[in-house]
Design a protein around this nucleic acid. Sequence first.
RNA 1: GGCCCGUUCGUCUAGGGGUUAGGACGCCAGAUUUUCAUUCUGGUAGCACGGGUUCGAAUCCCGUACGGGCUACCA
Length: 578
Amino acid sequence: MRLRFAPSPTGALHIGGVRTALYNYLLARKEGGTFILRIEDTDQSRYVPGAEAYILEALQWLGISPDEGPGIGGDYGPYRQSERKNTYQQYAQQLLEAGHAYYAFDTAEELEAAREKDATFKYDAGARMRMRNSLSLPGSEVEALLQNGTPYVVRMKIPQHETILIQDEVRGEVAFDSNELDDKVLVKTDGMPTYHLANIVDDHLMEITHVIRGEEWLSSTAHHVLLYRFLGWEDSMPTFAHLPLILKPAPESFLDKSSTPVLAARLTEEFARKMPEAADSLGGKAEQLALQILQDKKNLASGLKVKDKDDEGKAALKAFLKSALYGKLSKRDGDRLGFPVFPLSWKGSSEAESFIGFREYGFLPEAVINFLALLGWNPGDEQELFSMEQLIAAFSLPRINKSGSRFSIDKAHWFNQQYILKAPIEELAGQVAPLLKAQGHEPGQNFLYAFIGLMQERATLLTDFWENGYYFFEPPRGYEEKMVQKRWDPERSELFEALVNSLEGLPDFSAGAINTATEQFMEAHGLKFGEVLPMLRLANAGTMKGPAVFEMMELLGQEEVANRMRRAFKAFNQMVGA
RNA sequence: GGCCCGUUCGUCUAGGGGUUAGGACGCCAGAUUUUCAUUCUGGUAGCACGGGUUCGAAUCCCGUACGGGCUACCA
């Protein structure tokens, strides 16, 4: 069994692509097959330097590295389509000679004009003879055009009145009427093949047995089947499995009182940038209108439907909002909604083209894998947490769902939390240490392990260790105002100063000893836990959230604790105006 | 518009003729923890609609609605 993941190096690898790669990998591993990476770079205008390296690094980070591919090797290379140009030429020639393909000389302008005249224009059997190609033109003229170097493309000649049946592992049998199919371009003017030709030739030559790809390819699969037939490879045609798409999160999940106005403003701004005329026609009302639509939760869907009475501007805004709120998860969504949609961060040519990745956001690769595996597939039982080995053992094509699934960042967070919770401290240390170092801190191993031990069950993302536990390395940035106001009694300043002194004099600064000393102090002065512990916590951490206060103090150390407390009590007094 | 695919709690999903329609995330409440989190217990909430077929339909069939994909010399 040989499976390939065939991304186009046009930028960062989308999370949907990652899932496709994962499913290919899982099946290959389960069946003892080979997982191949092929770079589909036939569109030179869309080529983005660095994208291929990004893809490889992402797969490696996720633990689904290919067995064959560019930079890896294998017996079926080269694995970049741009390096296989001549191979495709040969098969295009074969198709031409067998009458399954023909030369077409129509210019881009001519095609555009045809589409303009008739919105439903299709380059098919009906239109073919009205266009300029080797079927409609006399042989001598074709010869002349070819001779004098007139640019041409090679088109596939679709036969009429045929039903093409596709056996899809996910969807079952899907039928297409060949009369609905257009004569797809096989070879472009620049001599490069299109995806359609290249993927068939490569899959055949690389002896691919199973094609697992996104649903967006289902429609063109009929063309692909025909191509296998024309090339005489139908007997060894791979098995197809078309994956459901990953969709944007449900609007209800991210539209709330505080985020809706922000989103409305952001989307209106984007709308104005993309459709300045429509936005102008709405004048200053665009944002208000957008907000209105977004706030009408119950009728969000129908609120987005364009009505006859809507003027052009409003209709355009609605259409824009709809595309921003529904449909396939896109790279923009990460920015709009504040979560990653790429495995790794991507540095584009501009701020707007740069995106933060799951890795940099603080996700563990195991969590991303687990989350993605279950988005569109499940083993049929109630297990949620899977190691890669378990996924490999449980995975199967028939259990892939047919319908698209919405991305949920909450669920992703939960998975990550689970993995942080059960990760060994030493392992987490390896992940967290670099994050601390980036903040200028390089704690010793004992301190680091203890810190992670205290924060582990309070972290959802790796970045939480620093975000929520920075005060283990630096003095608190401030003190929770409300809590100080509520709980700090300036008249107890001197009492607390005495507590600091006694803590300072402790021969053993362990959590247990601190606890005992504190209890003695409370007893001596008739104070309750609630009157003392919050003050200790606030003084040392600045926040009411965090690990057990005595353990926290032990790790901070005697001197640091004394300093922090003295400074804090002074600050508290100021805050309450004493 | 045309073609293709889909539709079970807000979300991810199990269930494929007889089920109190199960689980997970989220949310809510309670217990534990004098913080937060973890953990535990409970709750909330669903078969898009209309017709058939059948003794019986979430499940099979047809239609409608809705959603999605494709409709490029992009992949």
